[in-house]
């Protein structure tokens, strides 16, 4: 799959509203990749399957038993029983847009979340939203109605980056409001005050939720292009550091590399789907591999 130039952040940034951005992104990806992996309440017969211990007795096709003297279980395809929670980090650090980026991390993550919501709702899946900063700042319950999409996008658009990051609040919230199995998608830079935050996120996985981590980082955070003396200011508190960019670059990249390696390792250990997103890359480069992976998993 190749990147579509039309979905580059620079072009997306030219679209005025998040709704337009989400639609453009969603239309730009292959919607056909999406199929519900769940089988449940039937509205459309799909196929017969020979009964095996563990299958529900109520799904036995008695007519088929009468004709064939064998127990067959009816299987149905359903398109609406996927419930997805978009957890969007709206802390102060997400408002950062470095010198080489067209979108801030929050804008990039919101666009991704809205596009996925668009795709989900279009497939009759339910999409919900949890916005988190120092705590849960907004929460929208998942629904599959098309009209719900507008409310979702409006909520995303109204988010303003501020305060510290506490993803654990979002984890607690999802645990509380999503007792059933669901897809939980995190859009965050993981600059959390809790160094063990991934272990907290892993709790969701243990509860059978499908967890995907969109790790959003600005190109400036990954490459550290600063060469001159600078007074670096924190976006979440009052801390500041005076340093010469050229002098600290090497050390910074070393520390960052170690951290990313730790994040990847912990995500793999917890069986989390981890996607590192540079905010200067086209959005379909993030979405298409994710959808393809999901398709393969469903198959």
């Amino acid at each position: 799959m190749t990147a579509t130039p039309l979905l580059s952040p620079e072009l997306v940034a030219r679209l005025a509203t998040l709704k337009l951005r989400a639609r453009a992104v969603a239309e730009g990806v292959l919607t056909g990749l999406h199929r519900s992996p769940h089988h449940g309440q039937s509205i459309e017969f799909a196929e017969h399957k020979e009964y095996a211990p563990g299958d529900e007795v109520r799904h036995i096709d008695w007519k088929a038993w009468g004709k064939t003297d064998k127990y067959y279980v009816k299987r149905y395809e359903q398109e609406t029983n996927l419930r997805a929670w978009m957890v969007v980090d709206a802390s102060g650090s997400m408002g950062y847009r470095g010198p080489g980026a067209a979108l801030s991390k929050l804008e990039y993550g919101s666009t991704l979340a809205a596009a996925l919501a668009y795709l989900l709702v279009r497939q009759q899946d339910a999409a919900g939203l949890v916005a988190v900063g120092p705590g849960v700042v907004r929460s929208v319950a998942p629904r599959a109605a098309a009209s719900h999409l507008g409310a979702l996008v409006d909520t995303l658009e109204a988010l303003r980056p501020e305060g510290a990051t506490r993803l654990s609040a979002a984890v607690d919230h999802v645990v509380e409001v999503a007792p059933r199995r669901a897809q939980v998608l995190f859009f965050t830079d993981l600059f959390d005050a809790d160094p063990e935050i991934l272990r907290r996120v892993a709790q969701l996985r243990r509860r059978k939720h499908e967890v995907t981590l969109f790790h959003l980082l600005d190109p400036a955070e990954l490459d550290f292009p600063f060469e001159d003396p600078a007074l670096f200011l924190s976006l979440e508190d009052d801390r500041q550091l005076e340093a010469h960019g050229r002098e600290v670059k090497k050390g910074y990249l070393e520390v960052l590399g170690r951290w990313l390696e730790t994040v990847r390792r912990q995500a793999a250990e917890a069986d989390l789907d981890y996607v590192l997103c540079r905010t200067d890359r086209p959005l379909d480069e993030v979405l298409l591999p994710f959808l393809a992976r999901r398709e393969r998993r469903a198959a």
Binding site: G92, S93, Y96, D189, F191, D218, A220, E221, F226, D228, P229, A230, L231, F232, L233, S234, L235, E236, R239, Q240, L241, E242, A243, E247, V248, K250, G251, Y252, E254, V255, L256, W259
Partner: peptide, 26 residues
């Protein structure tokens, strides 16, 4: 001395850590 330019940067913790580790070398 050149006056340092104020530069917002989110990954300040990593900068602090890098500086701590490279202070003597710098």
């Amino acid at each position: 001395r050149r006056r340092p330019r104020p530069t917002p940067f989110p990954a300040l913790d990593f900068l602090f850590q890098a500086r701590r580790e490279n202070q003597r070398r710098l």
